[in-house]
Amino acid sequence: MERYTEKIRERARDLLESGKVDVFIGYSKGSVPMMNRPALIREPREVNKLLWDNHCALNLCNYLTKRTEKIGIIANGCNSRNIVTHILENQIKREQLYIVGIPCEGMVDHRAVARAVGQRDILAVEGLGEEFLVKGKDFEERFTKQTFLQRNCVTCRHHNPVIYDEMIGEPVEEGELPNGYADVEAIEGMSSDKKWAFFAQLISRCIRCYACRNACPLCYCPTCFVDESKPQWVGKSSDPTDTMTFHLLRAYHCAGRCTDCGACERVCPVGISMRQFTRKLNKDGETFFSWEAGLTLEKRPPLDTYRPDDYNDFIK
């Protein structure tokens, strides 16, 4: 994976130097291991900050919203699908973008790694192809990447970008998964009481920091409903009712739009798996509308569409 870093830098330099783009958006090393951060590079001399490794899991599309300059951007499957959604929803124009596509082989789940080393302080993590090396003050451990993938990467069906101006590297094979929604089905099978208990438990640790919302490229509204005061839809406290209201509404706002990029879960400081909400809606989108978000510029998401001749019987 790391083999793409050089290529990215090269392309970023060319694009900036030729004036094709005003800014290049990619990833750079964060201050904490496994937490790469987005980098907005404006000067060719800064391109060496850019990199590509197992920890490029924030969704860069978040940094495109309402920009007016010409932008170069790295796009793997997730990023590209959100770029599509961003274009559809008028948050950026296609002609502003120069999309450098990159095949993605999945990102490492930083929490799983921390657990694996018994929450000891990690000073560095180095990729070694199929494996990676975790270094601490007085330890070094090797892990196999495949067993430490982020959960959304395990069920990913779109590793390759769906929209790009050029590709770095050959597309990876998209393996069809036997059942990517086994977890959702398990919840669907629960009784109402059990479901309620499940979700109440799921969000019980939520501190309402809104990191999930801020990391989500879909949440670009100038004012979020949680911040509205006239009328006030949601209380500001972490009362369970308010917290549930927030999570349910946030999920509904993502219905038909979520690409399951996992940014929300990745940034959650208390480790809530809020994808359990959005994945149910993604599954319904597939079942009822044959729809996966961000795959086409031709159609708006099903819940954005009004058709008097809707072919779905359940809507008539």
Partner: peptide, 20 residues
């Protein structure tokens, strides 16, 4: 001032009342 220009209203209206 609060509109995000997402265009959902333009798409969903059966009467074409919203526009940009």
């Amino acid at each position: 001032a609060v509109c995000s220009s997402c265009g959902v209203c333009v798409e969903v209206c059966p009467y074409s009342a919203p526009s940009f």
